[in-house]
Design a protein around this nucleic acid. Structure first.
Lengths: 212, 212, 212, 212
DNA sequence: AATGAATGAGACTTCATTCAT
DNA sequence: TATGAATGAAGTCTCATTCAT
């Protein structure tokens, strides 16, 4: 009982340290990008020495991988937690969700950018998270179509379109577009935006025909 | 007549060199990202010495700005060249267009990523190109709505949604998603993709109601 | 008790390293001037890697500032240590003192040259050291005049004249003038020089008048 | 007659070009120092291309040598032009002269600084100008002493003291000391300064004794 | 396990000099 | 003879990584 417990406590402390470091790394990476972030400042933010960083991670790339894994898990869970039996609810939740945290959006951009340059990020964030989410969305669409709750479009295309839109909105937000007020109205709220876009996807742009 | 001609020749040579350098820079940046690209390799690819680079550009950042301007001009022209008087054509062209060149997509990602870290990129690519395109799209939507060719959705939201979707698809392509064949069919073609997505935006996902 | 002691040891080591680096920098700067001295050779002389230099100083300019401060402190202390209640002693000491070390003279020239090009040197060496010394000298002259030990010349001019002479002799020595033997006598000694110049300043050049 | 004339015209043009370049070099060197001045800006100031510079001078060092020679000739002539048969006039003129032009003072500092680093400057400016002036001064002092117009101090020391003082005042002026007003009086004028310092050297600091 | 000083490879950049036009 | 684009050596500085304490 003693050894396993000590082992467990040790493992717990290691996990805590790693989380503490990854938290700091996430902040630095999100603010400065991967290239401009320095291990020195990550260590400083984690209130550790630079040397200690290397007791928990092999190198800077691993820090990015670690951050990617954290956020991959996070987004996967959030998406999985969405409960909706009609398409409108589901889309609103999908769209609203990604508009939340600034740091999250920034890291999202970072992962997209780094993925082609960094196999770990590609694997951890893109393949194990993004693609699975898209696949799951496709499967849900397939079900909705089967149940007649959705027009029989190509579910793969629809899933990608939805995902692409969410990703694109993340980028637009990040680029500051959301700050623009339109027509004197208040600047976009994520909530309103989600609803309007959902309406667009759901009802389409085609003008109502005939007596509709 | 002599001086202007000589002047012109000199200017032409300078423009050529700059183009030659920017071409090399665009390739290096697109392949390695801004931080990992080196002036040495840009020079080598342009078949010039490193010092010569600095006869035409002040620093590495200016190389990125130059590349950004080139592609900002390019995309602006392409978008402006779109001629469509019905919404379906317009959307198809918008969506199809951005799926073309791989390097272009990679640089697009680069600009999105760098914009918040680099005021020049933010100004040149985001504000002077992306935003104007979105604004022009909004204006077109406004006209289509006025003419009854489009359902009276909020034109600003619609313009952003379309733009976000295009941007997102650019990213998805870049991430390799397009390489996946679905259902044994051939992998996506930009053409097909554009048409399907246009259908989605145009007709929406809502199942046909009533006797429709 | 533990923390302060550890802190002190660390600070002591840092101070030692800085001194070690500044020593090397002083030698390189004095031998080659600021522009021709290289961080590489400073590091080599300090028996450190080039990178380590930058753990202790921000840049090459700071190395020069550091050297300037060291020598500013040094000269200020030496001047302040002069004890003389009659003008002859004081002048002899003032004049003799600056003729001592070759490196010191070379750095003195360097600071004079760099001061107009380098605000730090101007502030550290010129304003905080040279000017204060001149001011202090003026004040001493003022007292000597008040006590009747000195002819009532303008004390500011006199202080500047003395200072200028010392500075000029420093330069002349540095230029190798002192190496010239005159009339077959031995080359100047700082001692002799000091006495003769003092005599000159004290008694003037005017021939004795009347029956003197 | 033709060849020599053409030769002469050619030589004249060469001399003009050289003077034009040296003028530009003098300005740049005086403003920025030798190391920080660039051949590019010297060429620009001389309204020439960089390449042309190298048709008239072998390298940057030669530019400095050329400037040194110009100013060495200049100062030698000025000193030689001094006409004075009594010591007061002579000293006033000596002292006043060097306080004149700012650029001249700056170059003077430059030559003093560069001399130990640059054999040409050492030879041209220091040995062929400065030392000769000091020697000539010593000789004049010798004559004045012989004629009883000057107290029999050591003429070599006196000549060096005078020279050192002039050099030192040049430095002090350059360091901005002259800008300080004293006692509410106007800031120093070269004229006043020269007179006061002459009085100091001539009459000494010793208080008047007895019934004087 | 923590530290942080030391390292050194390598990046960007400058600039005196050359040379084809 | 004048030009100025091209060169490349050399300089300053950064920073991920290591290792003795």
């Amino acid at each position: 009982m003693l050894a396993p417990q000590a082992q467990t406590r040790r493992e717990r402390r290691i996990a805590e340290r790693q989380a503490q470091i990854l938290e700091a790394a996430a902040i630095e990476f999100s603010q400065k990008g991967y290239g401009r972030a320095t291990t020195r400042e990550i260590a400083a933010r984690a209130d550790l020495s630079e040397g200690t960083l290397y007791n928990y991670f092999n190198n800077k790339q691993d820090l990015l991988s670690g951050v990617a894994r954290t956020f991959a898990d996070d987004i996967t869970q959030k998406i999985a937690a969405i409960e909706a039996d009609n398409i409108e609810d589901m889309m609103t939740q999908l769209l609203t969700d990604r508009f939340s945290s600034g740091r999250e959006r920034r890291l999202f951009m970072l992962f997209l950018y780094e993925a082609p340059l960094n196999p770990d990020v590609q694997r951890i964030y893109v393949q194990e998270a993004l693609y699975r989410i898209i696949d799951a969305t496709e499967e849900r669409f397939r079900q909705l179509i089967a149940s007649g709750a959705m027009r029989p479009v190509d579910p793969a295309t629809a899933a990608q379109a939805i995902s692409a839109t969410i990703m694109g909105f993340g980028a637009l937000f990040e680029l500051g577009r959301h700050a623009r007020s339109k027509n004197g109205k208040e600047p976009f709220s994520a909530q309103t935006m989600g609803q309007e876009v959902t309406d667009l996807f759901f009802n389409g742009m085609r003008p109502a025909q005939d007596g509709n």
